[in-house]
Amino acid sequence: MTEYKLVVVGAGGVGKSALTIQLIQNHFVDEYDPTIEDSYRKQVVIDGETCLLDILDTAGQEEYSAMRDQYMRTGEGFLCVFAINNTKSFEDIHHYREQIKRVKDSEDVPMVLVGNKCDLPSRTVDTKQAQDLARSYGIPFIETSAKTRQGVDDAFYTLVREIRKHKEKMSKDGKKKKKKSKTKCVIM
């Protein structure tokens, strides 16, 4: 069974824990209790493949930012979460993405942009803004509501699919490099 290491990042209060708990335990946590770091595991079937999701729910508070490099190193894919009623959390996505790329030393890291709290009427981040940002990053965008469960499975499952595509691409690139290195030079 394939294991996928997913990391949920975003500013404090955007609903990272609520999304994760909704996926794992099928219930909505409405009281806000700032996370330092929590880890969850769940076995699911995605596109006919049974897999184990190892999900790291991270601290959004700035005082825990020193811990970010460590979990970013171990993560295979990242859910970059903002709240649709919090423009600052949307603007912060850029910083999370840049930090992930720096730590992973790669421009090509599996990510999904997630606009959470889409059940709320007080939207300050337009869907088109988020779609445009995701398009500019070359990553999928999904709106979710941890409260109603809308888009929750889709967000995590899409990230797994992005990781699969990335692994497939990397193995193809690896095979191309191996083929090239088999060419021999004969000096007579």
Rank of each mutant, 00 (worst) to 15 (best):
T2F: 10
E3M: 10
L6V: 09
V8R: 00
G12F: 07
G12H: 13
G15W: 01
S17Q: 01
S17K: 00
A18N: 10
I24Y: 08
N26H: 13
H27N: 11
D30M: 10
E31Y: 05
Y32G: 00
D33L: 02
D33S: 02
D38R: 00
Y40H: 00
R41G: 03
V44E: 11
V45Y: 04
D47V: 03
D47T: 07
D47A: 07
D47Y: 03
E49M: 14
E49C: 05
L53G: 07
D54E: 09
Q61C: 13
E62P: 10
E62K: 07
Q70W: 03
Y71C: 15
M72P: 06
R73F: 14
F78G: 00
L79E: 00
C80H: 09
V81T: 09
V81S: 09
F82S: 11
A83K: 11
N85Y: 12
E91Y: 03
D92R: 15
I93M: 15
H94F: 14
K101A: 12
R102C: 15
V103N: 04
D105Q: 06
E107V: 08
M111Q: 03
V112C: 08
V114T: 02
G115A: 09
G115D: 03
G115H: 11
N116Q: 14
K117D: 14
S122W: 06
S122P: 09
T127R: 05
K128F: 05
K128Y: 04
A130C: 12
A130H: 07
L133C: 04
L133R: 04
G138A: 06
I139R: 06
I139M: 04
F141S: 04
T148A: 15
R149W: 04
Q150R: 08
G151S: 14
D153F: 07
D154E: 10
A155V: 11
L159A: 05
L159Y: 01
E162C: 03
R164A: 12
K167Y: 04
K167E: 04
K167I: 05
K169Q: 14
D173H: 07
G174K: 02
K175Y: 07
K176G: 06
K178S: 06
K179R: 04
S181H: 14
S181V: 11
K182F: 14
C185S: 13
C185I: 13
M188W: 06
